[in-house]
Design a binder for these strands. Structure first.
Length: 279
DNA sequence: ACCCAGGAAATTC
DNA sequence: GAATTTCATGGG
């Protein structure tokens, strides 16, 4: 991988195992939008970004060197060698070879812990288009405008004084009371996300499920997508189906230290091949 | 009308 | 304690 800094853009050349569409539309994040072929716009850590790809070249448009180094490098997990991880995972089970082949450019994003937590609280017993709508309304109502029509994800501190009624327009249903509890516990430090990030998976999970509406699955998604804990293996309805039909002899532990990455290949592959689970 | 959606809390057995 | 029901909302 080669990094070039121009006056306005950051350009990555000769990058492998990175596909924007696969990474941004595989169910791990909910806020990036496709604005034209191979071009996306979105936000994280309070920064707006337009990013585009052609083959093995990625352009971070109008992006400073410091934003790239401080935010986007780790956000897109550019320090991790996915080629070698895929090779190791492929040896565990042949179905993983298929799943990797289907979307070889998936990377696990390192999102903000609070955004991941909040997003996956909203995701429970919900579908992806509706999750995106609720999060969009949350950001547009309470986030800061950081570019034309683009908003940051509002912090727990920003949200902690609101009640269930104040969130009614989000149309998040029974999840509104969970959002309220998360805002309160995180903003006052009863649940310390920065500390949880440094804890073991077991301890961090215990910490996170103190929040109402956070169980093992939401906690694991928060740790995998928001804290970089790649051994986490969130078990949603799709993964339960996949384990039963595709990997009957395996458990989440079978996938090892990068189980979360395996999970993402399997989740996306399963969701795009629902016929595997019919009847 | 019915079923399901990246689950977890509340209730019942 | 384990199994089942309920929880809002929207799309198919």
């Amino acid at each position: 991988m080669l990094i070039e800094y121009t006056d306005y853009d950051v350009i990555l050349k000769n990058i492998s195992s990175f596909d924007l569409e696969q990474t941004l539309d595989c169910g791990q994040c909910f806020r990036w939008k496709k604005i034209s072929d191979n071009t996306y716009s979105g936000a994280a850590y309070g920064k707006f970004l337009k990013i585009s790809q052609s083959d093995d070249t990625i352009i971070f448009h109008n992006c400073s060197k410091s934003d790239f180094e401080n935010v986007w490098f780790s956000y897109f997990d550019l320090g991790t060698d996915y080629d070698s991880i895929k090779e190791k995972l492929a040896k565990i089970h042949p179905v993983l070879i298929e799943a990797e082949k289907y979307a070889p450019g998936i990377r696990i994003l390192k999102q903000e812990p609070w955004e991941a937590l909040c997003s996956f609280i909203i995701s429970q017993n919900n579908n992806i288009p509706r999750i995106k709508g609720i999060i969009k309304r949350l950001c547009e109502s309470f986030g800061n405008q950081i570019a034309d029509g683009e908003y940051s994800f509002p912090s727990a501190e920003r949200l902690c004084t609101y009640t269930v009624d104040d969130f009614a327009h989000l149309r998040s249903g029974f999840r509104a009371k969970y959002i309220v509890d998360a805002c309160q516990k995180v903003s006052c430090g009863e649940v310390d996300l920065a500390k949880a990030e440094k804890m073991s998976v077991g301890d961090a999970r215990e910490e996170l499920i103190k929040i109402k509406g956070v169980g093992p699955k939401v906690a694991d998604c928060t740790m995998l997508y928001g804290m970089g804990k790649k051994e986490c293996f969130p078990m949603d309805v799709w993964m339960k189906r996949a384990m039963k039909i595709l990997f009957p002899e395996l458990t989440p532990e079978s996938f090892g230290e990068n189980a979360g990455i395996a999970q993402q290949y399997i989740f996306h592959y399963s969701r795009m091949h629902p016929e595997l689970f019919e009847k």
